[in-house]
Design a protein around this nucleic acid. Structure first.
Length: 318
DNA sequence: ACTATTTCCTGGATGC
DNA sequence: TGCATCCAGGAAATAG
């Protein structure tokens, strides 16, 4: 399950592999829910672009796209790139086949994003891996895996493929992409504390809320709370400044350590080079139900909060 | 404005 | 062995 450290690791790996390469052609699969922007718009936006910076924003991978196809005009209207993007989004609303409702909603979200964007921002390819999404860089003759939803041919002769069995992953194009909340590795202590003020929701849920902090998922929420000595069910508003001060430290600590170890390889996560991470060996509570707490030896508990399994030590966390 | 719940999806694990 | 059932998870949609 790629969370911030895994996505960071993958983005760094991809940056090394594909920065500077040029997209020669794009094939997109037929599962509509994979594409958060209209497939035609994704294909048109990627076509003939040079891949610039590749970076992580929350749990998203963002590819900056530079330049454009010579002579390419969307809908032969001669409008600017910016307007072409908006226009094709609108046409997406009108067209909408069986997924009309879904598409319209997704399009509105995209339009809001574009609206908040400085004019002239570069086009971007945004990838969310969901649970099982993977970006594969390989030779064109490599057998096409089951659940391959996108294939991007590169001028270097290689292909960049998006493979996602469970299909929670999403592809889109944007300009000035911004994901809701604040980057946990960049936030300062006071804004961090302010995020949770007055919230009745369990602190675990608040940590998972991407509109507050972006990039923390189930594994790192549990690990941060363990290190801070806070039970996941505690209401966010009930935490003292001291509690939140500790949590502020442990969230950063856990994420940084996990990045340093290349993420956690649970189930089938591997980085852009196919290498496993090592942070799964450092996990103190996640996935350790019934096993002895590494600090006090009492068995790790598992409860369900907001539909997510949450692991904690009843003795070490209050 | 918030919060809680449901939905999507398939491979792997478990149960009988 | 085979078949059914459950479970994992992020985020958007829906309900309260």
């Amino acid at each position: 399950m790629p969370e911030l450290p895994e996505v960071e690791t993958i983005a760094r790996g991809l940056a090394k592999l594909v920065t500077g390469d040029v997209i020669e052609s794009v094939w997109l699969g037929s599962k509509p829910q994979t594409f958060k922007s209209a497939p035609e718009q994704i294909a048109a936006t990627l076509q003939s672009k040079r891949i610039g910076e590749v970076r992580r924003v929350g749990k998203h991978i963002v590819f900056e796209l530079e330049g454009r196809a010579s002579g390419f005009r969307r809908q032969a209207s001669g409008v600017s790139d910016e307007k072409a993007g908006v226009r094709s989004q609108e046409s997406g609303v009108r067209k909408g086949k069986k997924a009309a409702g879904k598409r319209a909603r997704a399009t509105r979200a995209g339009a809001t994003q574009a609206g908040a964007t400085p004019a002239g921002a570069k086009a971007q390819w945004v990838v969310h891996l969901g649970m099982t999404g993977r970006m594969v860089v390989c030779a064109p003759e490599t057998e096409i895996e089951k659940h391959t939803h996108a294939i991007v041919k590169l001028a270097s002769g290689r292909e960049l493929r998006f493979v996602d069995a469970r299909r929670f992953g999403r592809l889109s194009v944007a300009r000035g992409f911004e994901a809701g909340g604040t980057e946990p590795l960049e936030i300062e202590v006071e804004p961090f504390i302010a995020l949770f003020r007055g919230r009745k929701t369990p602190i675990k849920s608040a940590l998972l809320n991407q509109k507050l902090l972006r990039g923390v998922g189930n594994i790192y929420a549990d690990e941060s709370l363990f290190r801070a000595g806070i039970r996941p069910r505690r209401r966010a508003a009930s935490l003292t400044r001291e509690d939140l001060g500790r949590l502020f430290i442990t969230v950063k600590e856990v994420l940084q350590e996990a990045i340093a170890l290349g993420g956690s390889s649970i189930s089938d996560y591997v980085d852009a080079d196919g290498e496993e991470g090592f942070f799964q060996l450092e996990l103190r509570v996640y996935g350790r139900e019934g096993e002895p707490c590494r600090v006090c030896r009492s068995p790790v508990k598992r409860v369900v909060i907001a539909g997510r399994s949450s692991h904690y030590c009843a003795k070490c966390q209050k």
